[in-house]
Design a protein around this nucleic acid. Structure first.
Length: 542
RNA sequence: GCCCCCAUCGUCUAGCGGCCUAGGACGCCGGGUUCUCAUCCCGGUAACAGGGGUUCGAGUCCCCUUGGGGGUACCA
């Protein structure tokens, strides 16, 4: 039998790494087994959906290299793949259950339900919805709706035998049906609940294996109850461990705003009107955010953080893109969070992951999202990925972060990548090369660099000599430069550093750059000379 | 509160009763290479949560305790 897996995100925001990991494992299983992987959008909660989220989720999956065989934008035999477009299908099954007296209408307001739940809590009992003696018939539902009462449908949970969930990872987990109340399957807005929609779609779409987060383990008995009531098969289930954050607790989208909020509160001198302005939000919105009352959208968060110069922890997939990580590293790292090939290998590309993947090698325990380990994978993959792929990643990165380096064409970008061997992220390559893409007068001299290098005895003199000899060079090549600089160092009876460092600071303003010969060559003779002179003028009297 | 899951170095993990004097990777510490930042090379530090069983033998099986995580919605 062909294995069919799926990833079913709800478009409530950007795809975060936890979701990406879930998608990845489903994808790996499908690819390993020659099965199908499909994508379905669970947008049955109109309050939480955001219009751009689906687009972003699809982009992020594609960036990671996780492709789907059926789903949004490509279609397939089981569409539509947006649950919001499948209302008639769900309605049909809801009606079926009502006709069979397996489900029934309810007309309670949320307030009434809240009261019942509170009462149960006060008595220290589990809340179970009080099933009516007689189920209302459709005419009563119509009447209630006409009167403006909310109409929902609940499944009558009449099961008395223990419900056994067979989990591929955890074995058999037994639940007591007496603790599962009659749960809602159709909401008062006419949309099915998650439980109802997921069970129907997985059946209709032929999903054979459901790999999802441990947070769904407790939902599974409900799903099995529904599958039984509807006469559906029960797919294989595997509930993965959860990825927790290095700041403690489950990895959450809220971490970025939280981090920023703390940073703002710590900076007592920060001008809050100014912050609101750079975030393009009102002062009231900012204050409300600082009081933990609300959370601004992501562009605002990013803008304010950038303004304050603070690095927010990456959570969403797109955050990692913006920090200069490679999708290959992300996929590799995520795959190793809760799985391993068993032969000690760690650095693997997608193909190697697919070939080695095996459900039996998955782990049960939660794992911590360790950014340092991710960084190490990124370093490895920068070295490992084919040059043309790396260049295309680099150019995409430059676009996304709006770098001045984005002016570079493929050939130049390839060169920049080549002269920065050993970089850990694309961001590091960009930082080191940016000096060559900004106007001469725009370079800022790093305070530490000036102090450590330019103000040292003889530094300015060396710059003068370098300028003279550069002008005297017959041919401006990296080799020629190297010969010239090494010779100069020898004359001064010093290491190359004695010569290279002042030059580096003069042309970049900083102590970090690509290798000095490459850096000068990149900038070109004229601009190098101009920057040297500019530097001499500025620091000669200090 | 109730329900469920989990438990080996700081982190990711190998280990599926004797091959374990517990292995690897990341990090960290020390050293080396180097024009800066990195990369790279060498060395070192560091763990079976605790307590009971089972067994000739337990990191590996069972129970309890503790700890961590998840769930407890007309969210998914």
């Amino acid at each position: 039998m062909m294995i069919v897996t799926r990833f079913a995100p709800s478009p409530t925001g950007y795809l975060h790494v936890g979701g990406a990991r879930t998608a990845l494992f489903n994808w790996l299983l499908a690819r390993r087994s020659g099965g199908k992987f499909l994508l379905r959008i669970e947008d049955t909660d109109l309050k939480r959906n955001t219009p751009t989220a689906m687009r972003q989720v699809l982009d992020d999956l594609r960036w990671l290299g996780i492709d789907w065989d059926e789903g949004p934008e490509i279609g397939g035999p089981h569409g539509p793949y947006l649950q919001s477009q499948r209302r008639e299908i769900y309605d049909r099954y809801v009606r079926q259950l009502i006709t069979q007296k397996k489900a029934y209408y309810c007309f309670d307001t949320p307030e009434e339900i809240d009261r019942l739940r509170k009462d149960a809590e006060d008595r220290k009992q589990v809340f179970l919805y009080p099933r009516p003696e007689r189920f209302p018939d459709p005419s009563e539902a119509e009447k209630a709706a006409a009167e403006g009462r909310p109409v929902t449908v609940r499944l009558a949970v009449t099961e008395t035998e223990p419900i056994v969930v067979r989990d591929l990872l955890r074995g058999e987990v037994t639940f007591n049906p007496a603790e599962i109340g009659d749960f809602v399957i159709l909401k008062s807005d006419g949309f099915p609940t998650y439980h109802m929609a997921v069970v129907i779609d997985d059946e209709l779409m032929g999903v054979t294996h459901v790999i999802r987060g441990q947070e769904h383990l407790m939902n599974t008995p409900n799903h099995q109850l529904l599958q039984k009531a509807l006469g559906f098969r029960i797919p294989e289930y595997l509930h993965m461990s959860v990825t927790v954050s290095d700041s403690g607790g489950k990895l959450s989208k809220r971490e970025r705003p939280e981090h920023l909020r703390k940073a703002i509160l710590e900076k007592k001198d920060a001008d809050r009107d100014e912050l609101a302005k750079v975030g393009r939000i009102s002062r009231q919105q900012l204050d409300s955010f600082l009081l933990k009352e609300s959370i601004p959208d992501m562009p605002a968060i990013d803008a304010i953080a950038a303004h304050l110069g603070i690095h927010l922890p990456e959570i969403n997939v797109v955050d990692f893109l913006k920090s200069g990580y490679l999708p290959e590293a992300m996929v590799n790292f995520l795959a190793l969070l809760g799985w391993n090939p068993g032969d000690g290998r760690e650095v693997m590309d997608r193909q190697e992951l697919i070939e080695a993947f095996d459900l039996s090698r998955m782990n049960k325990s939660n794992s911590l999202f360790d950014r340092q380990k991710l960084m190490s994978f990124n370093t490895e993959h920068i070295k490992r990925v084919p040059p043309e792929i790396l260049v295309s990643h680099f150019r995409r990165f430059l676009e996304v972060v709006h770098s001045p380096v984005a002016q570079a064409d493929d050939q130049l970008a390839a060169h920049l990548v080549r002269i920065n061997e050993g970089a850990r992220t694309l961001a590091q390559i960009e930082e080191k090369c940016r000096f060559a893409f900004v106007p001469d007068e725009a370079i800022e001299y790093d305070l530490q660099a000036v102090k450590k290098v330019l103000r040292k005895e003889g530094a300015i003199d060396i710059l003068k000599i370098i300028a003279e000899r550069l002008k005297a060079m017959s041919e401006f090549t990296a080799e020629g430069l190297e010969t010239m600089l090494r010779q100069l160092a020898e004359e001064k009876q010093a290491g190359l550093g004695k010569v290279a460092q002042p030059l580096r600071v003069a042309i970049t303003g900083a102590t970090i750059s690509p290798p000095i010969f490459d850096a000068v060559k990149l900038l070109g003779l004229d601009r190098t000379l101009r920057r040297i002179h500019q530097t001499i003028e500025r620091f000669k009297d200090e």
